[in-house]
Simulated scan of single mutants.
Amino acid sequence: MKQRHISRSLYRAGGLFCLTAALLGWIGWQPAVAAPPEQIPVYTPTPGPDGRILYIVKANDTLLSIALLTGLTVDELKELNNLTSDTIFENQELLLGFGGPLEVTATSGPSPTPTPLLPTPTPRPGLGNLCLLLYEDINGDSIRQVEELSIGDGAISFGNQAGSVSENLSTIAGQDYQCFNDLPEGEYTISVAVPEGYNPTTQNSYELELGAGDQTYLNFGAQANTLTQAEAPQIPAEEGRRSPLLGIIGAIFLLAGLGVALFAGRILRNR
């Protein structure tokens, strides 16, 4: 009886051992599962209204941890925030950069009152003076000398391109320039017709720009032709003027006569 009780106990112990071994083997057969990696927070910078990107320092933050979080270097953080050391404080604002231009919201105000357009006054043209002369070019050199006076019975005409001035006049002999004052500035054309019996020695048409305040003088020359010179009265040489050679000869004879008289007087005294 005692032997049968021992056998039952051994049987129970062996079954428990087998069950335990089987359970351990099943556990060992299960595949190993790796622990999930630790999640690293990613900092997404958001610019403020003024365009600056700021970071608020948290507890246990260092410049190195902030640099790793934001993708900057420690030296860049120091340069942006004018830091001379690695010391930072909780709730301190650190500048990380600029996210864009400053967004300015326009404040609506009163509508501007349009300024009425005033009429622009038309500027008055300036005035100039023009003096003209048709002179007798005695030597035909096309240059007027003082003794070369004006020729009569000639014609002078001039006008401006605007059409506001148009003048025609006859020349008068023996006079100086014929002047026209207070003419409006602009481009003028002047032409001259010489009287019969004369040939022009200068150009008889001229264009000029008369400016404000100008005092312009124009000379037109003409020389009498051969027929006119032949018809002019000639003054005989003996009546108009005497030859200087005759005066020199007369003076020589007078001096010779005085010399002879003095010589004869000395001879008479010596006797």
Score class of each variant (00 low, 15 high):
Y55Q: 08
I56P: 06
V57E: 01
V57W: 03
V57Q: 01
A59K: 12
A59I: 13
N60V: 12
N60P: 06
D61S: 04
T62D: 03
L63F: 10
L63K: 10
L63G: 03
L64Q: 10
L64V: 10
S65N: 08
S65K: 08
L68E: 07
L69E: 14
T70L: 05
G71I: 02
G71C: 05
D75M: 02
D75K: 02
L77E: 04
E79K: 13
L80Y: 03
N82H: 05
N82C: 03
L83T: 10
L83M: 10
L83G: 03
S85D: 14
D86I: 01
T87S: 08
T87V: 06
I88W: 10
I88H: 07
F89Y: 07
E90F: 12
N91L: 13
L95Q: 08
L95F: 00
L95N: 02
L96T: 03
L96M: 07
G97N: 05
F98C: 04
F98K: 09
F98H: 10
G100H: 07
P101N: 13
P101F: 11
L102V: 11
E103L: 15
E103A: 13
E103T: 13
T105C: 05
T105K: 07
A106P: 09
A106T: 08
G109H: 00
P110W: 03
P110I: 02
P112A: 01
P112Y: 00
P114I: 09
P116Y: 11
P116K: 09
P116N: 06
L117D: 11
P119T: 07
T120P: 13
P121Q: 14
T122I: 10
R124K: 15
P125G: 01
P125S: 04
G126V: 06
G126H: 02
G128Q: 01
G128Y: 01
N129F: 00
N129A: 02
N129T: 05
L130C: 02
C131I: 02
C131T: 01
C131N: 05
C131Y: 09
L132A: 01
L133N: 04
L133H: 03
L133E: 04
I138W: 01
N139M: 13
N139W: 10
G140M: 09
D141I: 11
S142P: 13
S142D: 15
I143C: 13
R144V: 06
R144F: 05
Q145D: 13
E147Y: 15
S150D: 10
S150T: 05
S150I: 06
G152I: 00
G154I: 04
